[in-house]
């Protein structure tokens, strides 16, 4: 029964999806929308395929910026989050500072970084990093600070040292909340890369979308958006897969597998 429900539900979704594109396709034709405003999906596929080489190369460029920025964010945010969670001095100094910076829209720094560091890879990686770092670090701090009182007491009652308590209890207990940050950052990583490329670059999907839009080619712009979305989806997919492998016991993972 549940299987059947899942099948019906996914079919409903697919049907809606197909319906949406059919509506787009025929509405554009029916209302005679000019091609320089909006093109039907079939034309997007066709023109996109014709320009596939460029699109793929730019997907590689933007994908590299995104992944590098994201990975560096994780690598730096986790230890910093840990340090802040376990040090009361850092919690009173760096933590409020991070919370303040979190209020600043990181994207606003993009033009500055471009002007400082030029058109290359580095400023984009830094901007993706900035977009990803804060949700990861703030969720990590929350994760490592929210062990239940009962488990804290249990750990103390066993006489285990700090390291053993960390490995056996604190770390696994913190993983679900850490993944909240990882996923949020994964969704926003491509936003950072695209905007950085809008502002100053000579390659990448953001650059591509801007150029083709200027040339009145919405079909190619949509093709670029498609590949940009694909990068985001892949990143999110990898994170979700890691989540399933690392915390199969957690309720957010369990619900999906039912």
């Amino acid at each position: 029964m549940r299987m059947w429900n899942t099948v019906v539900h996914s079919w409903m979704f697919i049907a809606f999806f197909i319906g949406f594109f059919l509506f787009w396709e025929y509405a554009v034709i029916w209302f005679d929308v000019p091609r320089y405003i909006l093109t039907p999906p079939s034309v997007i596929v066709q023109k996109g395929a014709a320009d596939l080489d460029r699109l793929l190369y730019y997907t590689y460029v933007t994908g590299l910026e995104t992944v590098l920025g994201y990975v560096v964010a994780i690598v730096l945010a986790l230890p910093i989050g840990l340090a802040i969670a376990f040090s009361s001095v850092l919690r009173r100094t760096i933590y409020p500072f991070l919370v303040c910076i979190e209020m600043v829209p990181k994207i606003a720094f993009a033009p500055l970084f471009i002007s400082w560091l030029g058109f290359g890879l580095l400023p984009k990686v830094i901007i993706v990093f900035l977009v990803c770092f804060f949700p990861i670090v703030l969720n990590a701090i929350l994760a490592f600070n929210s062990l239940s009182e009962e488990l804290t007491r249990f750990a103390r009652s066993t006489g285990a040292g700090a390291w053993r308590t960390f490995v056996k209890i604190r770390l696994p207990a913190a993983l679900p909340q850490c993944f909240v940050g990882f996923k949020y950052a994964a969704i926003n990583a491509t936003v950072g890369a695209a905007i950085a490329e809008f502002i100053g670059s000579d390659e990448g999907l953001g650059f591509y979308i801007q150029i083709v839009t200027g040339n009145m080619r919405p079909d190619l712009a949509f093709a670029g958006i498609f590949f940009l979305t694909l990068i985001g989806l892949c990143l999110f997919g990898v994170v979700t897969l890691a989540e399933r492998l690392l915390i199969p016991w957690h309720i957010s993972v369990r619900r999906k597998s039912h």
């Binding site: 239940s148 009962e150 488990l151 007491r153 249990f154 209890i169 696994p172 207990a173 915390i247 016991w249 957690h250």
Partner: peptide, 8 residues
């Protein structure tokens, strides 16, 4: 009072 079983 609240059990200390860990979910993982």
């Amino acid at each position: 009072q609240d059990n200390t079983l860990v979910p993982w």
